[in-house]
């Protein structure tokens, strides 16, 4: 039990210590899924948005957030599901992008999720991807997409033509 109610800045710092269960090198704050932290009376309300609507990690994430904040002494706490506006990879922090890359996951390339789809499709039918994704292992740009779906809903499967390693690309939405 805490004597004084912590400021929301302090809470944000605590939340930055909660890891994403699927990609443990980045925090839920890096991922951009914590949308709001507010005191409503004596209750701390944390609004969390899902990355993908069927993401099975959602309940684990909520549990981890609650566990961590309780360990910090917060007793009166509510986690709200926030659907709108829908999550976008634009909300990934710069620090988060760097950590993803160091972990072996190519970070999303901004602004490629929406407008360029026709061009991408044309390029793929012609045998290559219009996206220029850098291999997180060797840095080569000679890479190709294997599948737009990967080991978790938020990732696509890619491979490097130079070092021949497969890797995950965090796809734009």
């Amino acid at each position: 039990m805490l004597d004084t109610r912590p400021q929301t800045d302090e809470i944000w710092r605590w939340l930055a210590e909660v890891e994403d269960p699927e990609i443990p090198v980045i925090s839920v704050v890096d991922l951009g899924i914590v949308r709001q932290v507010d005191w409503q009376g004596d209750t701390l309300v944390v609004a969390v948005t899902p990355t993908y609507s069927g993401c099975p990690a959602v309940s684990v994430i909520n549990f981890e957030i609650e566990k961590h904040l309780r360990a910090k002494g917060i007793e009166d706490l509510r986690i709200e599901r926030r659907l709108s506006p829908p999550w976008t990879t634009e909300w990934l922090s710069d620090a988060g992008r760097e950590k993803l890359k160091a972990y072996g996951i190519a970070p999303p390339i901004p602004d490629t999720g929406t407008p360029d789809r026709k061009a991408q499709r044309a390029a793929r039918l012609a045998g290559r991807s219009a996206l220029d994704v850098e291999c997180p292992r060797c840095g080569s740009r000679e890479t190709e997409r294997v599948s737009q779906f990967g080991s978790t809903p938020c990732k696509a499967s890619w491979r490097c033509r130079d070092c021949l390693e497969p890797f995950d690309y965090f796809k734009c939405i």
């Binding site: 899902p50 993908y52 609507s53 069927g54 993401c55 099975p56 779906f149 990967g150 809903p153």
Partner: peptide
């Protein structure tokens, strides 16, 4: 993944 999305919807 597609099934998961649909069940999320």
């Amino acid at each position: 993944n597609t099934a998961l999305d649909l069940i999320g919807h």
